[in-house]
């Protein structure tokens, strides 16, 4: 499986909350939420983000609400999220939805908006193709990579069918 992703970078700061990624007034519908996703932080983002783009963010990205905010980002085609750290519920939701999210202290200083990033999701190795800078992110735990490789949480649960009585 190809685990290397390349894309153009959008940058965000610290403590971006999940309510600003998927607003309440959108009924948690990914298509509706995508129209205003992250607009409080970058007005251009919802209209100019392209499939395959990568988000680079600061500390505590996606903090707060348990809503599956990454569905809005997936709808917009965001291919990966690289951040200093993230909200725990958002972090797990995002993997389960099928968007890889890597935590990497120092990452936000390594990228400017518009840079090209390359990330190997399985090893956590990140390159800035524009500047040549590289950094090693925390390697995702096998459990998460397994779910991602299976195509998301649902596919993963299905693949475990034989091991559980409730699924037979």
């Amino acid at each position: 499986m190809n685990t290397v992703i390349r894309g153009k970078v959008w940058t965000f700061g610290d403590n971006v909350n999940s309510e600003s990624i998927m607003a309440t007034g959108t009924d948690f519908d990914p298509a509706k939420a995508a129209k205003t996703s992250l607009c409080h932080y970058d007005k251009e983002f919802p209209t100019k983000v392209k499939p395959g783009d990568i988000i680079v963010a600061g500390r505590n990205f996606g903090c707060s609400s348990s809503r599956p905010a990454a569905r809005a980002l997936k709808f917009l085609g965001v291919a990966a999220i690289l951040c200093e750290s993230s909200g725990a519920i958002f972090y797990r939701n995002t993997w389960n939805i099928g968007v890889p999210i890597l935590e990497c202290p120092g990452i936000s200083k390594m990228f400017n908006k518009g840079d090209e990033a390359e990330v190997d999701v399985s090893t956590g190795f990140i390159k800035n193709l524009t500047t040549g800078a590289t950094v090693q992110a925390e390697k995702p735990i096998p459990l998460l990579l397994e779910r991602w490789a299976a195509g998301g949480m649902i596919e993963w649960v299905k693949s475990r069918r034989d091991q559980y009585d409730t699924l037979k």
Binding site: Y164, T166, L167
Partner: peptide, 30 residues
Amino acid sequence: GTDSHTCTYGGLGAFSTGIGSTEMCNVLAL
């Protein structure tokens, strides 16, 4: 619970935490 404020029940000495709706599928099945 599928709500971040599920952490409230810790007031009674339980381990209680919010999870995403994606994760709840896993819990309900397994």
